[in-house]
Simulated scan of single mutants.
Amino acid sequence: MTVLPSSAAEAIAVQEELRELVEIADVGEPPQYVAGLDVAYDGDRLAAAVVVLDVDTLSEVDRAVVHGETTFPYIPGLFAFREVPALLAALEQLRTTPDLLVCDGQGLAHTRRFGLACHLGVLTGLPSIGVAKTTFVGTHGELGPDRGTTADLMDGDQVVGAALRTQDGVKPVYVSIGHKITLTTAVAQVLRLSPRYRLPETTRLADQACRKALHNG
C-alpha cells in the first residue's frame, strides 16, 4: 500500500480487494522469530514499534521504532490505514526478518474480515495474527477460569476468532487469524508468548517501546 486512500469508500474497496488474498493455513516451518507490533499516539503524532523475540527464550533479538504523523482519519473498521504505513516502515528497518507478526488488533474478527493483522500479513507476505484486548465484532460463550481455556468468537454463524484466557482468572484476550496461519496455531502461539502476563510478551514490549519513543520525541 504505497498510496493511502482518499476516502472511506476507497479504503473499504482496498480491504475488499486485499481480503481475497488472505490464506487460512499454516504456512512454512514453526516460527523462530516472532515480532510484536504496536503504535502509540499523541494527537496526530505517532510512534510505531516492532520488537522481535526468539520464541524459545522470549529474549529480544531486534527492534525498530519509527516516528511519524497520522495521515488517515480515525474511522472504526478502517484503523489499519492509520497504522500500516508506519508499521511497514519499522519492519523495513529490522535486521531480522520475523517468521510471525503479532499485531495489537484484529485479524478476521472484523466487520469485513480484514483487520490490521490481515492487512499487514497480506502486504508483507508474512504469517500474522491479531491479539486484541477487546472484541470488535463477535460474541462468545462462557469461558473457564484456567489458563489456556478458550471459547469460539462467533459473528453470526462464523467463527472469527477465539477468546483465550492466558492466565488463571484474568480477562481473556481475543485472538484472530491474520494471514498464513490457522486459529488453532494462533492460539497456541499466543499462549506460548504469554507465560506470566495477560498480554503476550511481544505486545507488551512493543507497547513499551512505542510509548517510550513517543514520550522522548
Score class of each variant (00 low, 15 high):
H140C: 09
H140K: 07
H140I: 05
H140V: 08
G141R: 13
E142L: 13
E142N: 12
E142T: 14
L143I: 11
L143V: 07
L143C: 11
L143G: 12
G144S: 11
P145E: 10
D146N: 14
D146T: 14
D146G: 12
D146V: 13
R147P: 04
R147E: 08
G148L: 11
G148C: 03
T149P: 03
T149G: 00
T150N: 02
T150L: 02
T150F: 01
T150C: 05
A151Y: 08
A151G: 08
D152S: 15
D152W: 02
L153A: 10
M154Q: 13
M154T: 07
M154R: 15
M154G: 03
M154I: 12
D155S: 14
D155P: 00
D155I: 01
G156S: 07
D157I: 01
D157S: 14
Q158G: 00
Q158R: 15
Q158Y: 12
V159K: 14
V159L: 04
V160M: 08
V160Q: 10
V160A: 10
A162Q: 14
A162Y: 03
A162M: 13
A163I: 06
A163K: 12
L164Q: 05
R165D: 06
T166S: 11
T166W: 09
T166L: 05
Q167I: 05
Q167N: 08
G169A: 11
G169M: 09
V170C: 12
V170K: 12
V170F: 10
P172I: 06
P172E: 01
V173L: 09
V173T: 08
Y174C: 08
Y174M: 05
V175Y: 01
V175R: 00
V175P: 06
V175A: 01
S176P: 08
S176F: 00
I177C: 10
I177A: 01
I177T: 12
G178A: 02
G178I: 04
G178L: 04
G178S: 02
H179F: 07
K180S: 04
K180D: 00
K180Y: 04
K180A: 11
I181E: 00
I181K: 03
T182I: 03
T182N: 04
T182F: 01
L183V: 00
L183N: 02
L183W: 00
T184Q: 13
T184I: 02
T184L: 03
